[in-house]
Computed example of a mutant assay.
Amino acid sequence: MTVLNRLKTELNNKDYYSDDTYSMYLDENGLDSVTNYDCNVMKKALYQTVYDILDSLANNIDLFRSVTTEFATTSEAYKYLQERLNDINAKIISIPDDTAEEESNIHFLFHD
C-alpha cells in the first residue's frame, strides 16, 4: 500500500482534495506519496498529514460539508471536525519521536 493510499484510507476515502494536493501535504510532512507505507516509521507523519488536511477543512467548512453530507448544520460539522482533530492530536502526541536520545529521569543539579 502506498503512503497516498494509506492517507486516503485514514480519511475514509473521501475526496476532499485532489491527489496532487494530498501529495503536497504528505511532502510537507516528509512523506513521499508513491513510497510503500511503513507503519513503524511513518505513522506519526501520516497522522500529522491527516491533521493538517482536516485543519484546512475546518477553515473551509463548506468544502467539508460538500463531501461529507451527513451533517444537517454547519455547527454540527464543525463540532465533529474539532473532535476528530482532537483525537488525531492525541494520537500524534502518544507516538514517540524517532530520536536517538533516550529520556532520563536523572538530571544533574551541578555540572562543570
Rank of each mutant, 00 (worst) to 15 (best):
F71L: 03
N13C: 07
Y25R: 02
F71N: 08
I92K: 05
H111L: 02
V34W: 07
E101A: 15
A77T: 15
V41C: 04
D55L: 08
V67E: 03
M24F: 00
Q82H: 14
L46C: 01
S56V: 11
F110H: 14
F64I: 09
A90K: 05
D98R: 03
Y78Q: 15
R65V: 14
Y37V: 14
N36F: 10
L11I: 13
N36C: 12
I53Q: 02
F110P: 08
Q82V: 15
D55S: 04
N60Q: 12
L54V: 09
T99S: 10
Y37R: 13
Y78T: 15
D98L: 01
V41W: 10
N89C: 12
A72Q: 13
S104M: 02
T2D: 07
L11M: 13
I93M: 10
D62I: 12
M1F: 13
T69I: 13
Y78W: 12
L46Q: 02
F110I: 09
E101Y: 09
D27Q: 10
E101I: 01
I106N: 01
R84E: 12
T74E: 08
M24L: 09
N60H: 14
S75M: 15
E70Q: 09
K79N: 15
A58R: 14
Y17M: 11
C39A: 11
I53G: 02
E10H: 05
L109P: 03
G30Q: 08
M42L: 01
K14F: 10
T49A: 01
R84T: 11
T21H: 09
N105A: 06
N89T: 10
Y16R: 08
Y51H: 06
D15V: 05
T35A: 04
I92V: 15
N36D: 12
T35I: 13
Y25W: 06
T49E: 00
E103Y: 04
K43L: 09
V41K: 04
L4E: 03
L85H: 07
T99G: 03
N60I: 09
S94Q: 14
P96I: 05
R6M: 07
K8D: 00
P96K: 02
T69W: 00
D55R: 04
Q48Y: 01
P96M: 07
Y16I: 10
M1A: 03
Q48C: 04
T2L: 03
K44M: 13
D52V: 06
T99E: 09
D52Q: 02
Y25A: 08
T35G: 00
D87E: 11
L63G: 10
T68Y: 04
T99I: 10
F64W: 13
